[in-house]
Amino acid sequence: MPRYYELRDDLHHPGRWHLRSPVDEHGQKLNPWQFTESRRLEPQGHIRFPVRPDGVTLDFTQDAFANPVLHARVVQLFEHMGIQEVQFLPVQVDGHPGPYFILNALRILRCIDEARCAEVQYFTPEDGQPEKVGEYKYVRGMRIDPAKAEGARVFRAWGWDALIVSEDLKQALEHEGLTGPVFTEV
């Protein structure tokens, strides 16, 4: 059975930078959720990320909304591995030479194995958000059903903001010695 991992950035990396919300060339905030909808996006002009606090750059990091931002080294690895389930959107990170890119995962798969998760809570009518009733409110100790991953190498788990990668991609990222990625088996 294939193994999968949630990919996040290392929040405990000593002296690390922290990327804020993406903005356009005029400093106006962009909708950060558009990068989690797993749909191909048209070029949007100049996207940049303010950095506060500044610090050690990471090859893989996430902005304030958990959108993955990658150095070109990571993009080259994805391309070398022939991974086509993603879109790379060029961005600028204030005060740091790039190039950098937002990783836009183009697949969402309904694969969370609720019975194997440590805890799953759903939105109810009492939460006051009728459009979300029945959706995930909280998932702790997430586990997925590998059979429902359909052999994908990069995807988002439906209903929960998690970026999932296959074991071969995890191993390749680790082998490259990139800074920033942290993996949790799901």
Rank of each mutant, 00 (worst) to 15 (best):
G95V: 12
L77H: 08
T179R: 15
R143K: 07
D10F: 09
E167G: 04
V139K: 02
Q44E: 13
K148L: 15
L169M: 03
N104Y: 13
G180M: 06
W33T: 14
W33V: 14
P130G: 13
H26M: 08
K29F: 10
V69P: 05
L163M: 14
A105C: 10
F155T: 13
E131N: 15
L178F: 15
L7N: 08
R153G: 11
I83Q: 00
K29D: 09
F183S: 10
I47Y: 04
P146D: 10
F123K: 04
G177F: 12
E167C: 07
Q84D: 01
R143V: 02
V186R: 03
G27V: 04
G177K: 04
P2Y: 09
H46A: 08
G128R: 05
I83L: 05
Q34A: 02
V56S: 10
A105H: 05
Y100V: 07
T184V: 14
P32M: 02
K29P: 12
V165W: 03
E42Q: 13
R153F: 09
F60K: 03
V75L: 12
T36A: 11
R153M: 07
P22L: 03
V23E: 15
L77N: 01
L106M: 13
M142A: 01
Q87N: 12
H71F: 15
I108N: 10
L173W: 02
A105P: 10
L11C: 12
D94L: 13
R110F: 09
L178D: 01
G98I: 06
L41C: 07
E126V: 09
K170A: 08
L11P: 09
W160N: 02
E131S: 15
H26S: 11
G45R: 04
L30R: 10
L7Y: 00
L70A: 02
P97N: 10
A162D: 10
H71Q: 07
F88Q: 03
A149V: 11
Y136E: 02
D145H: 09
D10G: 07
F65L: 10
L19A: 05
M142D: 03
I144W: 02
P90D: 10
V69T: 02
F88A: 07
Q34F: 05
F101K: 07
V51Y: 02
I108S: 11
S38M: 00
E37Q: 15
L103Y: 03
E126K: 11
E185F: 08
P32V: 01
G98K: 02
I144S: 00
L70S: 05
G159W: 05
N31W: 03
W158V: 06
V69W: 04
H13T: 14
Q34W: 08
D63N: 00
V51C: 03
L169S: 07
A149F: 13
S21N: 11
F65Q: 15
